[in-house]
């Protein structure tokens, strides 16, 4: 089939824009990878762009030999899984209940939930709350406060609302109760949205560090992004050099260590994407109802 010229021009334009967008995302990553694999002299001489110069694994060796880094990786993975599990359970239960018209007072409940999207107590009240709940310096300070994201809850709720009522009706006729309907019928039909929302929770937990900065004091409980943030920021702050005068300079970390830490902290979460990819493309709902 031959296609018209405007069609092909359109395709070419789309391909071009897509390529540019992809490069905008990929080039900085390649640069960081190249920096992490280059020698410090090459970096100071600005010789590194997209390909390692004076290839060395020294930075990775330094990170691997750091037990706290490895621990942080393991700990952050576990903490992210725990958070995602807790968050998905709470969000699914809440969203399912709120999607049912027969739930009395659901508009009031929903309003209360939505209000928290726009108004918060602020940092210090939050901190005092976490302190009074005895969660300071524990993993729960990172797992529980963000366990329901209102945005994700709304997305889930509208998805459940849009599921045809006929599924539920037929299940009720077969004698299923609410829990059975949710677990056996609704959830299997919702895999794509569940995968997406899980990913949202997991990625935001993996990448988050501000809460840890305030709530966590023990270095053993630092998530990897907080460690990374410190590695990158601590050694660049000019203010530090100015305040400390002659004393501070020796603490500077080489660029390549910083870059290696960035790679180190990004790889695990990048690995999750291909695994969840198939759920994004599967249209589970198609063909659910016939006639």
């Amino acid at each position: 089939m031959t296609r018209s010229l405007p069609d092909r021009l359109f395709d070419a334009t789309v391909a071009f824009i897509a390529t540019v967008a992809v490069l905008l995302c990929v080039v900085p990553i390649l640069n960081v990878v190249a920096v992490s694999l280059s020698s410090n002299s090459a970096l100071l001489g600005s010789k590194v762009t997209l390909w390692p110069v004076e290839f060395t694994l020294q930075s990775y060796a330094a990170l691997w030999s750091d037990k706290s880094m490895i621990w942080s990786l393991v700990y952050t993975s576990g903490m992210t899984l725990l958070h995602t599990g807790v968050a998905m359970a709470l969000s699914v239960f809440a969203a399912y209940a709120l999607s049912k018209k027969r739930l009395r007072g659901r508009t009031a409940l929903m309003t209360m939930i939505v209000v928290t999207m726009y108004f918060g107590g602020g940092l210090i009240p939050d901190y005092l709350l976490i302190r009074d709940l005895k969660m300071l310096d524990t993993v729960w300070a990172l797992v529980l406060p963000g366990a329901i994201s209102v945005f994700n809850l709304i997305v889930l709720k509208s998805f459940f609302t849009n599921l045809p009522d006929s599924f539920e009706e037929s299940a009720v006729m077969d004698g299923a109760n609410d829990v059975q309907i949710l677990l056996r019928i609704v959830l299997p039909l919702s895999l794509p949205i569940l995968a997406t929302i899980s990913l949202f929770y997991a990625v935001s937990r993996w990448n988050g560090f501000m809460d840890a900065l305030f709530y966590i004091n023990s270095p053993a409980l630092y998530p990897i992004q907080l460690k990374l943030y410190q590695i990158v920021v601590n050694s660049t702050a000019l203010d530090v050099v100015v305040n400390e005068g002659a004393g501070g300079g020796s603490m500077n970390l080489p660029e390549s260590i910083k870059a290696a830490a960035v790679v180190f902290a990004s790889v695990p979460i990048i690995l999750v994407y291909p695994w969840l990819q198939k759920h994004f493309v599967k249209g589970t709902l198609i063909g659910g109802i016939k006639g």
């Binding site: 901190y127 005092l128 004091n217 410190q230 530090v240």
Partner: peptide, 21 residues
């Protein structure tokens, strides 16, 4: 010993002072 991240010392200290910690 209580650690305070070097580059965020002011933020963290303000918070700890405000919370009595």
């Amino acid at each position: 010993f209580v650690t305070v991240p070097r580059a965020q010392e002011v933020d963290k200290l303000n918070l700890l002072m405000a919370a009595g910690q």
